[in-house]
Lab assay of single mutants.
Amino acid sequence: DWREIAKLAEEALKKQQPVTVNGQTFNDPNEIKKLLETAQKAI
């Protein structure tokens, strides 16, 4: 669910920690931002 992904990505950016989505881990803040943008577009 994109809403859940957006929430996870936002928290990861705030806490500056990696986030795992669908078994894929994102460590890079730039990648997390991209993930968040993608999720927000999909909602």
Rank of each mutant, 00 (worst) to 15 (best):
I32C: 02
Q17N: 06
N30M: 11
V19Q: 01
A42C: 12
Q17D: 06
E4L: 14
Q40M: 14
N27E: 09
L36C: 03
N30P: 04
K7T: 08
Q16K: 13
L36F: 06
K33C: 03
A12W: 03
T25M: 09
E4F: 10
Q24K: 14
K41L: 15
N30L: 14
P18W: 05
L36Y: 05
E11Y: 06
W2S: 02
A12T: 00
D1Q: 11
N30H: 14
L8F: 06
Q16M: 12
L36W: 13
E37T: 07
I5H: 01
A6L: 14
N22P: 01
P18S: 09
R3N: 14
W2M: 04
W2P: 04
G23T: 03
P18F: 08
I5L: 07
N22R: 08
I43F: 04
T20I: 13
L8Q: 08
E4D: 10
N27M: 14
T20K: 09
P29F: 13
K33W: 12
A12R: 00
L36G: 01
K15Q: 07
K15H: 15
G23R: 03
K41I: 13
N22D: 03
N22K: 06
N27K: 09
I5Q: 02
N27I: 12
V19T: 03
T20A: 07
I5A: 02
K41Q: 12
F26H: 05
K33I: 13
E31L: 08
P29I: 14
V19N: 00
K34T: 09
Q24H: 10
K15L: 11
N27G: 04
L8T: 07
A6H: 08
T25H: 09
Q17G: 09
K33H: 09
E4P: 01
K33R: 15
T25L: 08
E4T: 10
N22L: 14
E37P: 00
V21T: 03
Q17C: 07
N30R: 14
R3S: 14
L36H: 02
L35M: 04
L13E: 02
A9G: 03
E31D: 12
K33D: 04
A39P: 02
P18R: 03
N30Y: 13
K14V: 13
D28T: 14
E11M: 09
D1H: 11
A39R: 00
F26S: 02
A9F: 08
Q24A: 03
D1P: 09
L13Q: 02
L36V: 04
I43K: 01
V19Y: 05
E10V: 10
Q17Y: 09
E37W: 06
E10I: 12
A12P: 00
P29L: 13
E37Q: 05
T25D: 05
P29T: 10
K15V: 08
E10S: 10
N22C: 13
T20L: 07
E11I: 08
K41W: 06
Q16E: 12
I32Y: 00
F26D: 00
T25N: 06
K14T: 09
K7N: 09
A39M: 03
Q17W: 11
V19R: 00
A12I: 01
E11D: 10
T25A: 05
V21G: 01
E31G: 05
V21W: 10
W2Y: 05
E37H: 08
I43T: 05
W2I: 03
V19G: 00
W2V: 03
Q40K: 14
D1K: 11
I43V: 11
A9I: 12
L36D: 01
D28H: 11
E11C: 07
Q40W: 14
N22Y: 07
L8M: 15
F26T: 05
G23V: 01
Q24P: 01
Q17I: 14
